[in-house]
Amino acid sequence: MTRPPLRRHSTRLLAGLAVIAPMLVGGEAQAQVRKPEERPARTATAPRHSAPPRTAKHSAQVGNQGGNRVNGNVNIGNDITVAAPRRGGAVVVPVYPGYASGPSVGAVVATGVIAGATAGLVSGAMQQSNTMTGVQGATAPPGTTLEVGMRLATLPNGCTTQRVGQTTYYRCGSAWLQAFMEGSQVVYLVIPTP
């Protein structure tokens, strides 16, 4: 079966968060625990369970397309991409601003919300995650000296990119950083000069 082409719409969301991702388009719901709201697949209405309304503390910027990180701010794409519906509606999930990315929560993040968040989802699994990731997600406060081995959830302000061979690095003052995926998160690791 050929998957229908994706269609991009540029309708701005009123609720402040984008609905992303289309897919998981299926047949008619066969066993809904709770009947979902009737919602056309291509409306610009945020789903019921989107994040709470943003306040001035939130760093997510609505109004920019894409999902690009710019110096710690997260631009939540507000374009809606939906698959043309087949027999049923697309399953959509909202993109959250994400606490690990916002400078407004930097102080809290740095003191452990992110580390705590990885501890103990349920049963032993998350303890393993915590062991693997350690303290993660800190946003370096201004003036922090970036030492080799530090891991950051966001790039400090003023960093530039630099390619060495096939690899992209970030230059933040005299420090070199490289991005990795850890679990489901992007982490910037301070590394020795490549």
């Binding site: 050929t2 998957r3 299926g26 047949g27 008619e28 066969q30 066993a31 625990v33």
Partner: peptide, 18 residues
Amino acid sequence: TVLEFQSWNLKAKLDVAD
């Protein structure tokens, strides 16, 4: 952890492209 299941579809039409 609290999971609230909103909908299940046991006849989903998924294919390789998904």
